[in-house]
Design a protein around this nucleic acid. Sequence first.
RNA 1: GCGCCCGUAGCUCAGUGGAUAGAGCGUCGGACUUCUAAUCCGAGGGUCGGGGGUUCGAAUCCCUCCGGGCGCGCCA
Length: 552
Amino acid sequence: MITKTLADLVTGALEKLGAEGVLSMDGAPEVAFERPKRREHGDWATNVALVAAKGQGNPRAIAEAIVERLPDNDIIDRAEVAGPGFLNFHLAPSWLHDVVRRATDPYSGFGRHRLGEGQSINVEYVSSNPTGPVNVVSGRHAAVGDSVSNLLEAVGYSVTREFYWNDMGRQIELFGASIAARYLQHFGLEADVPEDGYRGDYVIEIAQGIAREVGDKYTDADPAERDRAMRELGMARMLEAARVSLARFGTSFGVWTLESSLHESGALEAGLETLRRGDWTYEEEGALFFKSSELGDDKDRVLVRSNGQPTYFAADVAYVRHKFERGFDTLIYLWGADHHGSVPRFMAVVEALGFERKRVEVEIVQMVSLLRAGEAVRASKRAGVIVRLDELVDEVGVDAARYTFLTRSIDAPLEFDIELAKEQAPENPVFYVQYAHARICSILRRAAGEGVEATVSDAPLELLTHISEDALMRKLDSFEVVVLEAAQRRAPQRVARYVEELASAFSGFYRDCQVLTEDERLTHARLALCVATKTVIADGLHLLGVSAPERM
RNA sequence: GCGCCCGUAGCUCAGUGGAUAGAGCGUCGGACUUCUAAUCCGAGGGUCGGGGGUUCGAAUCCCUCCGGGCGCGCCA
């Protein structure tokens, strides 16, 4: 990247200053560059003189000294000192032509980085218990998890997307019993959904599906046996339904792990044994406790209840080990804000098991509060009050739905009004971006129809001198740093903002610069810029899990 | 009470140490004989919740207060 080249030049000047004794090079500052907001501030700027001046004199004077000592080069047209001591660099236009060429060359690594090279990351998201259909809250997690995973891959990590099913415990028991009641009702028998059971209509649908599949053979079975059968058959249906809903939303996982498999394989007991051996447990009132309070948590936590049943938390212990045993360097978890209180105990487990805390990262995705035409919807799976992801996809489409989730930081709570989402779907900025892409495709189709080929490598890019062409090329350049920062900060919204800006820059270019003209060379250059823009828009959208249509 | 997150334009939100704080929607005014008007141009709109501090420089970091969400189970 150009910033590396510039940093080397400035570092060269700083070293001269150090050698001359003008500047102490202790703790030599990192030379960071940024793109100034204002054009007159040049192409790239650095605040290194301001940083270096801390306690060592006048920043402007140091900046001047740096300028005087810059090594000879053919990149910097001129360097200026500005404001309190910024160094502004005006570059030769060729650096932008390089951006256009690299953006279209799949082997150039444009928008790709080697930050995570050789490292593997497991990203677990959406995970839930299979007691209800996938809802819009999970949609937010799915959109974010997919995009963060895509971004991590873009910066070089090997990424595994994982889903964890909590298919055990009291909620699952209740779910099975609820289906059983509906199953009996289906055959005209008297039965009640348990007090705390699941009352959604989908439970009736599942029971009917099961009735069609197995007939009435469980109507006079032993109640416990019937509940067990209904639980297993029902869960299988929920799992499949979730897979379908998520796939339809564009989300697919590399690994699905069942909590029950950790019990069955002995992993759970092995995890507990590790904690016992490390003296991290004790028994009290018949329950097994984990000494999480010694590792930063508020209190100790129960691993095995006094009735002998392991908690969900005990399975977490086994699961962390299981993931590390599979060779991942880093584990990322996307959790809902309602689980953030569990983070300290979870990190305590990581440490107690002997893993470095920094290898585990829990990202908290803030709440999605549901509204319907301004009225708060108190979502409850048990009461059957949910807004399904399928419904959202039916009403607004995958791209608009994803984009809505991805324009916000995960730290920001999201108010989601399904009626408003439907109403505003056509206004969704995602279409603005897609439109720019489709428009470019249209130009390229027309060019091809006229027998004009859009090659980039031999295009006379020096003809791109219009202010709008310049602005577009500069915006293309930003993609590289946007991808890197979005990946590092787990912040897909930066990519969403970026593609909007890029589409806007293209619109300006489209307005001001006719692409297909009598001037063959200019047409050639502008087509190359179109190809570069199309490539980057498509890449940005794909990082968000959004399609880049060729026609709209 | 304690912990985490949030408070930025009328609304929904970006921006977390740099130069004159942005976008979309909404409002008002304008532009289609044109490579796609799902577009473009212009206008209006801000005590960055309040106060204090650190810094050459704070929406951004620290303290404090106010307001909102979530959590503080041998539930998941």
